[in-house]
């Protein structure tokens, strides 16, 4: 059962790519932490093939249920997964630098920035694309879950969506509740055993 995802070669070139990737992702994370998850998935799962889809979802669950910003947490996890502690340092640096630099610049020119119509038009245009990126990834991930033909999983997804989007329940509680249901599924033998091993 050893079909773990390939680990990239961890030379200087690799750290450079990891830094560049997290820097780019962070620089385009408008509209809340969750936007970085679809972007990370595109980069690390689809483009570089460094991480599998399922593992990426597990890391997202951990990132969301830990204290702190989701974007920062997710990049710590991805960095650690790819290259241990050093990877985590590199990806956190890449994630934190763009807001640090932008905010430093913006705070110098704050009044002009806030009142600029040009800036607000560009940002509105970009936000439309952000929504498209997020929903595109939702489509891919939801298709993967529906394909498993596990009724409970599909129900959990649908209920969680209603609970957050309509009733604004606490996300950590939702994740915990779904984890509990998952535990119940194990006890009744619903969990597939085709899990890859990671050293």
């Amino acid at each position: 059962m050893k079909n773990r995802t390939p680990r990239p070669d961890r030379g200087w070139a690799f750290y450079g790519r990891l830094f560049a990737a997290t820097f780019e992702l962070s620089a385009f994370t408008f509209g809340g932490g969750f936007v970085i998850i679809p972007l990370m998935r595109k980069k690390f799962v689809e483009k570089f093939h460094w991480i599998e889809d399922r593992e990426m979802m597990d890391l997202t669950a951990i990132a969301q249920s830990s204290p702190g910003a989701v974007a920062v947490n997710a990049s710590i996890l991805v960095g650690y997964r790819l290259a241990g502690l050093r990877g985590a340092y590199v990806s956190v640096l890449g994630t934190v630098l763009p807001p640090l630099v932008t905010l430093t610049l913006v705070s110098l020119f704050y009044d002009q920035f806030r009142d600029s119509r040009i800036v607000s038009f560009v940002l509105k245009g970009m936000q439309a694309a952000v929504v498209a990126v997020v929903l595109d990834v939702v489509y891919v991930l939801a298709k993967g879950i529906v394909k498993q033909r596990e009724l409970i999983s599909i129900l959990l997804g649908a209920l969680s969506f209603v609970a957050t989007a309509v009733f604004h329940f606490n996300v950590v509680l939702i994740l915990l509740a779904c984890g509990l249901v998952g535990t119940g599924m194990t006890l009744t033998g619903h969990v597939p055993h085709d899990v890859e091993e990671v050293p």
């Binding site: 669950a61 997804g157 994740l175």
Partner: peptide, 9 residues
């Protein structure tokens, strides 16, 4: 397994 659908949601 239980948390993954919630993450998508």
């Amino acid at each position: 397994q239980g948390m993954r659908p919630a993450v998508v949601a």
